[in-house]
Amino acid sequence: MNALKVKNIRKTFRLSKKQRKIEQTSIKKKIAVDDVSFEAKPGEIFGLLGPNGAGKTTALRCIATLIKPDEGDIIVGDYSALKESTEVRKRIAFLTNELKLEDHFTPNYLFQYFSRLHGIDEATIKARRQRLFQRFGIDKFQEVKVADLSTGMKQKISIAIALVHDPDFIVFDEPTNGLDVMTAKTVTDYLVELRNEGKTIILSTHILHVVEKLCDRVGIIIEGKMKAYGILEDVIQTSSDGTLETLFFDLVKEEAGEVHG
């Protein structure tokens, strides 16, 4: 299984009048991701760190083929996200807080629905549903409408549904955001399981200890630019006191100094 390679991607957005007003700027175009490159290998968790608005979600959306970069390319296994988006979608799972489930349906119906959209046969659907629902404790709630479930349960269902097609590449955008400690632990434990199965995982978060605990490789993105990148231990070594936290805040301050200086 080949790695996931992000090659010099750049993405700009045109700011609407409303957005310019909110961000108090007169600039009409915002560079969300600026010449970002990184690589995530099979059996690794790659942590993409960055403050809010740094460009993490935009980069991940480009990988998930929801949006197209203006420049550069993303290679998922053997396929280009730009030119072979359908092939990429067959092999990738994308989960973000913004990806919601329809309240009216039950977990069982949604699992079946998304499995069919991925072209999975009924026997495989049944086996995968049983395994994933048991793993996340969804089985008891499989016929309960999503609207009647807790936030934590909804997130677990979202993960199960994102993985219906047993993808080799998994992109999770802040998967533990807003979850209670128990549910967050279930999610992080499962990420480790997936890594051990040889999956390639990209995890975006701003929770530093999650990165320190889970990730093999890390990239720190600030104001759309990759400021630090490499094996976790090597990146931490570059910090003045040998911690990821200091490195992260130094980089944020440095960027703020560059912007305002």
């Binding site: 092939e87 973000t96 919601k100 991925h118």
Partner: peptide, 17 residues
């Protein structure tokens, strides 16, 4: 409604045309 609720993105990341 799917756009407003964010569920359209869930659909668009599937390989369906």
């Amino acid at each position: 409604g799917e756009k407003e609720r964010g569920t359209i993105a869930t659909l668009l990341v599937t390989p369906i045309k």
